[in-house]
């Protein structure tokens, strides 16, 4: 895919090529506090700047992926719709804890966004794989 680079200096470009990979662990429910929004904003900003990053939905964070949410009356930005833009922003590495899903009676096949379910052993392997990790 052809990618647009803004006209910035070659040293800055070098910094982007060398960028460290980042895993964002999003573990807050979508509508009650700023955590889920902050995690998404970091992912969208990182994606817009071509950073290699992944998002893991853990604990109550999996509620962000509940299908058919209708937050229209909440007077908040529509996080559920915004989440759908992650692949457009180049963020394709999306993961979800299968234990967190099972605890909440949710099915990996019925999420609003395609995320790869991971078991417990795969979770620690995932964290290991990234250069940096941030948990919100």
């Amino acid at each position: 895919m052809k990618r647009h680079r803004s006209p910035i200096g070659s040293s800055a470009l070098g910094a982007i090529e060398m960028a460290k990979s980042l895993l964002i662990i999003s573990r807050q429910a979508p509508w009650s506090g700023p955590g889920a929004r902050e995690a998404l904003d970091i992912a969208l900003a990182g994606g817009a700047f071509d950073l290699p990053l992944g998002v893991l939905f853990l604990d109550d964070g999996v509620f962000q992926l509940q299908a058919a949410q209708q937050p229209g009356q909440l007077q908040q930005k529509n996080l559920a719709a915004n989440l759908q833009a992650l692949p457009m922003f180049g963020v394709d590495e999306l993961f979800v804890s299968s234990v967190s899903l099972a605890e909440r009676g949710m099915d990996a096949g019925n999420l609003s966004l395609a995320a790869q379910p991971l078991d417990e052993a795969e979770l620690s392997a995932l964290v290991d794989r990234y250069d940096q990790v941030i948990t919100l």
């Binding site: 647009h4 969208l44 994606g47 719709a81 915004n82 457009m88 922003f89 180049g90």
Partner: peptide, 20 residues
């Protein structure tokens, strides 16, 4: 259409990707 779908304005990269 992008805004209808995602409720946000795209940065350059997603705009290009969506247009393509």
């Amino acid at each position: 259409q992008f805004y209808q779908e995602f409720q946000l304005s795209p940065a350059t990269r997603p705009l290009i990707k969506y247009t393509a």
